[in-house]
Structures are given as structure tokens and as C-alpha cells.
């Protein structure tokens, strides 16, 4: 079976790296190159022992319903794995609608909105503070990730938000 593996950063939609891993019985091919690899689990834990070409490593792995979260030396990476068959099926079905770059700025962590620093209709530059979110008694300024116009504000001062809650929508600047 061939798998397409995409390694992203953390939660961000940053540039991912794609690998093709083929598993055929005991044979494993990484981007066409044969490697000797095995993965064992430590029972009742997320810990896996990986051996690739004689090099051993321990990782923590968990499947969150969408993909894998792989942790090595404290760094957690989101890793998407799609087998070839599933990918083809998806392509045949017309693929999922590509949700282009969303203009909605979301809460990066749970907290309380202290202040709004922009108004609806306001034209803003990248880096401008949009809202101030308080978490753990620290004030965190959430800044605009791009130039644009504020088309929607979803919160008000005093709102308590969960991680990922929409805060402000930015439309194109022209």
C-alpha cells in the first residue's frame, strides 16, 4: 500500500512537506528508496519505538480522528496520511471543496476578549492589533495576518471564547 504523508508544522497551515511511503509486507520504501523500518508500541501508552535503517528513536503518536499527531523530543507535528486508494476515491468524487485561505481570524487559545481595537469597515494593514485576548492574566494582542478590510466582528468586550472561535473576518482590501 502506498501512503502520501504530509508533515505540517504545529496547528498552523504552514508549508507542509510531502513524502510517499510504500509498505509492502515487511518492505518499506521512502520516496522510492528502500529502508529497513519497524514500529512497535509500548502498550497502554502513546509511545512508539521506531527503527529506521538501524537508527532507533522513541516517539509519541496519537490519531485525532483526522490525522496523526507525532511528537519527537517535545515537538508536536500534525501529520496527514492518506493511502493511495482513498486519495483516488476522493479525486473521483470531485475532491473536497478547496476552502481557500480563510479570512477569519480565530482565537489561538481560550480566554476573554478585553478590547476590540478595530471597527467594522475599517481598512487595516498586516500586523495591526485587532482584539486583545486575556488568558492566564496576560493580555495578548491578536494581530491581522494580512492587509484587508474588517468585514465582520464576531465578539465584543467581555466575550469568553474557546480556542478556534472566530474573532474577526477580513475581506480583501480593495
Amino acid at each position: 500500500m502506498k501512503y502520501e504523508v504530509t508533515i505540517g508544522g504545529g496547528d498552523g497551515a504552514g508549508k507542509g512537506r510531502l513524502f510517499v511511503v510504500e509498505i509492502d509486507g515487511d518492505d518499506v520504501f521512502l520516496d522510492g528508496r528502500r529502508v529497513v523500518a519497524r514500529l512497535d508500541s509500548l502498550p497502554e501508552t502513546p509511545i512508539r519505538y521506531l527503527e529506521v535503517d538501524g537508527r532507533t528513536e522513541s516517539l509519541a503518536m496519537a490519531h485525532d480522528g483526522h490525522g496523526w499527531r507525532v511528537q519527537v523530543r517535545g515537538r508536536v507535528r500534525a501529520v496527514g496520511v492518506v493511502d493511495e486508494r482513498t486519495r483516488r476515491l476522493r479525486e473521483l468524487a470531485g475532491g473536497e471543496a478547496k476552502s481557500g485561505r480563510s479570512g477569519v481570524v480565530k482565537a489561538p487559545m481560550p480566554g476573554m476578549i478585553l478590547r476590540l481595537q478595530v471597527e467594522r469597515g475599517q481598512r487595516i494593514k498586516v500586523g495591526v492589533g485587532l482584539v486583545v485576548l486575556e488568558a492566564m492574566k496576560m493580555e495578548n494582542e491578536i494581530r491581522a495576518p494580512q492587509d484587508g478590510v474588517v468585514t465582520q466582528i464576531y465578539v465584543e468586550a467581555g466575550s469568553v471564547v474557546e480556542k478556534g472561535a472566530p474573532l474577526v473576518e477580513l475581506g480583501p482590501s480593495s
Partner: peptide, 12 residues
């Protein structure tokens, strides 16, 4: 990253 890719594919 290569080793992570191998681990993820094996786990999947």
C-alpha cells in the same frame, strides 16, 4: 522528517 513520515505511514 523522513523518520516521522515512515513512522506515520507504519502507524496508519
Amino acid at each position: 522528517l523522513e523518520r516521522i513520515a515512515v513512522a506515520a505511514a507504519l502507524a496508519e
